[in-house]
Amino acid sequence: MSALLEVRDLTVRLRVGGSDREVITGTTLEIAEGEAMGLVGESGSGKSMTAKAIARLLPAGAGVEGSVHFAGTDVLALSGADLRRHRAKVAVVFQDPRAHINPVRRIEDFMTESLRTLEDVPRAQARTRAADALEEVGIDDPARRLRQFPHELSGGMLQRVMIATALLSRPLLLLADECTTALDVTTQAEVMAILDDLRRDRGLSMLFITHDLELAGAVCDRTSVMYAGQVVETSAADRLHADPLHPYSAALVQARPDVTSTAERLVAIPGRPVSAFEAPSGCRFAPRCPHALDSCRSTEQVLTGLDAGRVRCERAATLRGRLLDPTESPTESEETADA
């Protein structure tokens, strides 16, 4: 599998009131053709910024270091028409479709705009393709929907319109940024199923951003976990729950409310999530990590391969297999580990 997208040591700084604020630090991830990569982490960890850097949608004045390669091109060097072509190949499905679709234009306009502007598809043909795309995402009476305005459609329906539209221009990569978070639970499940289906049908690569580790496990091949602007772990999506490599991933697994078990399993992660610019030196998770040692705080942690995954924790190998064990209290395990 060759990598379609390769992000290496990506660091992003945004200008906030005259000073630079680091929001991503040395993020590394790659997505193969046809692969779905999950990106999870608490609020402010830099998930959206990573996606924006890939699609080159960062706010003006953002400083970017590292590299992003997509389908053989150096994304960070693109400008003008080349940049627009890159953006056309990377479709973004945003969280809030109501805000992200122009409210004064008809659905048909929204759906066919790319086809007509970028590919010169004649109007009638573009309309037919849009109607077909609507049917594919399970919207009845597409002809009528195309004539309607966004405010006449429900949130779930609009998100399906967004997905159908994203697929219409035949992108190579889909960036889905919490694309179901704004919907109610049943609609979430429906929209998710449609997205998953269509993506697999087309063999499309996807970066799937979510807070929901379980959802990522269900639809993705691999999952990357972000903390304070850094990727702290990348593992096979289905293995992350059972065998997390990083203490933060383990904490996320345990914090996840699980419908099948009692509330006792819900362990909140102590402490407050931090963003990159406010993170401590050394291991950024150390203040909240039950396994932290002095050396963790004094050394910058690097992303290192461990088994089939990658983890940014010097103690990962030692802690392997014990992170989810409720009988083993952290302090005791510390003693045995260091003895």
């Binding site: 953006r87 122009n102 004064v104 502007t117």
Partner: peptide
């Protein structure tokens, strides 16, 4: 506005983003 970001993210030329989304909506 977010919908302008959507238009940009689709690779539309800046002139048509401005005309079809920014000016069209600001016209109100």
């Amino acid at each position: 506005k977010e919908h302008v970001q959507t238009a940009v993210s689709r690779g539309l030329p800046w002139s048509s983003v401005v005309r079809r989304h920014v000016l069209r909506n600001a016209a109100i």
